[in-house]
Design a protein around this nucleic acid. Structure first.
Lengths: 228, 228
DNA sequence: CTCTGTTCTAGTCAAACTGACTTTTACAGG
DNA sequence: CCTGTAAAAGTCAGTTTGACTAGAACAGAG
């Protein structure tokens, strides 16, 4: 039985990258389409679903092919299937969203057909991809407020100021350092390593590590996201 | 381009139906499979995706074909695509969850191959459908606590006691009537009609109507779910 | 070596919210 | 007219939240 429907997998990839004034900017890599429909337009990385791979594995593979990176966080966003979303025929897209680490995202190669864009300054994209990115942004911001995922933008250890900066950039508002500390500590999602960062003209901050032993919320119906 | 992947649409349909002791029970209609794989096993209503319909419209149509009902609430749950979830080949299922009204669910015809089951007493189902129902149950219970969806189980008007009973059955715990009232009133999701229900041996309760003008939370990326 | 600017870290305090509980209202039925 | 029941309104203490204050600990300037 064939339904005459093409199945695709795409991914909205988020990273914090240095912008104009040296400040970190929430950014998304896009690929330029090299054929119709929407030739020349920017679009989300993705491609046809693979018959033997899991959907998440396909998303992770396309992410790696586009950016050379491995995701620190990967979750299914939504399945988009409006009949008219592609002019070339019926395409149903299973869309994932991913977080990659800032230090890795700096190394990610750009090219003629791959470029990073600020998440709030996107051009007009192919298909319904603007709608998809808007929804992914909403999910990222919503989930950041109740789930411990911000650490996925950072390395294995980080200060609370760095973690707070991630929240501030994503949520686009300043957060009180003392209240942020209280909130994070009460969630028990991070543990101090015992080390400190020296060199700043101020009291040396503690280093923390994400504590994966406390499962906080859902990652979808699967207990662990298998990407291989 | 054909991926060799079959695309299906299934729906987890929730309703409150009278059970043993006359009490309402959270129930799900299932259909018996009449062919391999899993012939004879119970499974979620669904079928192959239609090339011209939206995914939500297919879900609503399959729901109507199975139960004769129209959903009061319909939302995409998740897209399941593990490579080994069907022994007969690769099948990717876009799963929706729906709420139908109790008074309509009573009329829904049962047959040899369609039967309602208590949501917490399901037999072993075909494919990964037990996992899917568990996840749908988790989503229903989670969303009930922050979104105004309980009214979808009821008619156009209802008392707060009826609305509270819906919450108590779904969440499986007693709720304080006074605190429930305060919570619902502060959400502004219902408005009193001005009418009262008489006939009980107690103070006549007010009738309320759901106020759809206050958009409370997400229904997915689409502003309104189109089912046609 | 002391002063200064900075940020980390630990508190304080009032407003808002929450869960448990009490009181008053309004009916049906005996 | 009394009683049982549930609706509706109100009370109160414990918790959480946002705004704010204050001490701690460093680097660099003078």
């Amino acid at each position: 039985m064939s339904t005459g429907i093409d199945l695709a997998v795409s991914t909205v990839i988020f990273a914090l990258r240095p912008g104009d004034a040296g400040r970190l900017v929430l950014s998304i890599p896009l690929v330029r389409r090299t054929r119709d429909p929407f030739e020349g337009r920017w679009s989300l990385p993705g491609g046809a679903a693979d018959a033997t791979e899991s959907l998440a594995a396909t998303a992770a593979r396309k992410l790696a092919e586009t950016t050379g990176l491995a995701p620190a966080y990967l979750e299914q966003l939504y399945c988009f299937g409006a009949p008219d979303r592609s002019p070339s025929g019926r395409v149903v897209s299973v869309v994932y969203w991913a977080l990659v680490r800032a230090d890795e995202a700096e190394l990610a190669a750009e090219g003629e057909n791959v470029r990073w864009f600020a998440a709030d300054e996107l051009p007009q994209l192919a298909f319904d991809h603007n709608l998809i990115v808007d929804y992914a942004l909403w999910r990222l911001r919503t989930k950041l407020e109740y789930a411990a995922i911000a650490h996925a933008f950072l390395g294995p250890t980080f200060t609370l100021a760095e973690l707070r900066q991630v929240h501030e950039i994503v949520l686009q508002r300043a957060l009180d350092p003392a209240n942020f500390r209280r909130q994070i500590e009460s969630s028990r999602s991070v543990v101090p390593t015992g080390e400190h960062v020296t060199g700043g003209r101020h009291r040396p901050p503690r280093l923390y590590r994400y504590d994966g032993s406390v499962q906080l919320v859902d990652n979808g119906p699967l207990t662990s996201v298998a990407v291989r």
